[in-house]
Write a protein that binds this DNA or RNA. Structure first.
Ligand code: FES
Ligand code: FES
Lengths: 147, 147
DNA sequence: ATAATTAAAGACAAAGTTATCTTTAATTAT
DNA sequence: ATAATTAAAGATAACTTTGTCTTTAATTAT
C-alpha cells in the first residue's frame, strides 16, 4: 500500500509519540532500533516530517533528539501521509487511469470507491496519539521481532 | 495500490475480454493503443499471463495475436493479481510489519483488516467478464484519453 | 520453399526507491 | 573557547521498476 519510506515514517512517528516528551527526546538510533528500520534512511525520512515542526520536532546537539508536541499528537495519520507526499494514492484509479472520476470511471470504480472512502476516513479520523496509546497499552506493536 | 505492470495487465486483459475471440485476435499494438500503455512493456507483461493459457492466450504469426477463452473470462480479477505476483500485497501490514497477524498486530490492524477483507472479496468475486461487460455497455472505460 | 507477420525472448537503458556514508551545523557541557 | 554530541545535508551506491530495442521463433500466405 505505502512505500517503505512512508511505513518507516508512520512507525517512527507513533514510536516518538509513545516514548518521547520535550524533556526526553529520542535519538535516531533508538527510534530506528525500536521500529526495526535502517538508521540513516530513517533519519532522512524524519527530515520530511520536521520542517516547521509540522509533525515531529527535532533539536541538535547533546540532549537533543526527536520529540512530538501534544498538539501534533492530535494530528490524524493523514498528516504523515501528506508530509510524505503519499496522499495522492488515495486519489488514484485502481486500474491506473489518469484520473479517478465519476465522469469516466474504470470498471472497478463503482465498487472500489466505497472501499477507498473507508480508507480515507480511517486515515482522517485516527490520530497519532490514538495509535501510540495502543502501543502503550500493549495491544499493538511496531516491530515484529521483539515485544 | 498496484504497480504499473499490474495496472497494464488488468486493463489489457479486460480489453482483450471485451474485443477478442478465437477468430478475432488482437495485436499487441492494438491493445497498447486502446489502453494507453507502452507497447513493448505491455508485451513483456502479457507474457506473464499466457503460460499455459492461464489467463490469456497468444498465437504467433499472421492472423495471430491475443485472445481469451470463455473459460478464462470467468476468472476473478485475483487470477491476474496472482499471475503478476501481487497477491501478497493483500497480506501485507499497512505499517510494514513483517507479518500482518492477530497475534502481533500493528496499531492500525484492527480497523484496517476489515477494509482489506473487502478488497480481497472484491478481487475474488469480480470476474474479468463482468468488467469487460461494463466497458461494452459504455458505462466504464479503460482509457482516460479517448472514449 | 519463400516471404511476411506476429509474439517471445533477451539485452539494455532510464528512472525511481531504498540504503549507506561522510561532512556540516547546531547545541550542550566542560 | 573547546570538545562532545546530535540531527541536517549532501554525495553516492545498490536495487527495483519501468521502458526500449533487437533478435529469434512460430505461423500463415504465396
Ligand atoms: S476510475 Fe478507476 S477507481 Fe475510480
Ligand atoms: S498487523 Fe498491520 S495491518 Fe495487520
Amino acid at each position: 500500500m505505502f512505500s517503505k519510506a512512508t511505513e518507516y515514517a508512520l512507525r517512527a512517528t507513533i514510536y516518538i509519540a509513545q516514548k518521547s516528551s520535550v524533556d526526553n527526546k529520542l535519538s535516531i538510533h533508538e527510534i530506528a532500533k525500536a521500529i526495526d528500520s535502517p538508521v540513516s534512511f530513517t533519519a532522512k525520512i524524519l527530515q520530511l516530517l520536521t520542517p516547521g515542526n509540522k509533525v515531529i520536532s527535532a533539536v541538535r546537539g547533546p540532549k537533543g533528539g526527536f520529540y512530538i508536541t501534544e498538539q501534533s499528537k492530535k494530528l490524524p495519520v493523514r498528516a504523515i501521509l501528506i508530509a510524505m507526499g503519499e496522499s495522492k494514492i488515495l486519489d488514484k484509479c485502481v486500474l491506473g487511469l489518469n484520473k479517478c472520476s465519476e465522469a469516466k470511471p474504470c470498471p472497478m470504480h463503482s465498487q472500489y470507491k466505497n472501499i477507498k472512502q473507508q480508507l480515507i476516513s480511517l486515515f482522517e479520523t485516527k490520530t497519532i496519539q490514538q495509535l501510540a496509546e495502543d502501543i502503550d497499552g500493549g495491544i499493538a506493536f511496531l516491530n515484529s521481532k521483539k515485544g
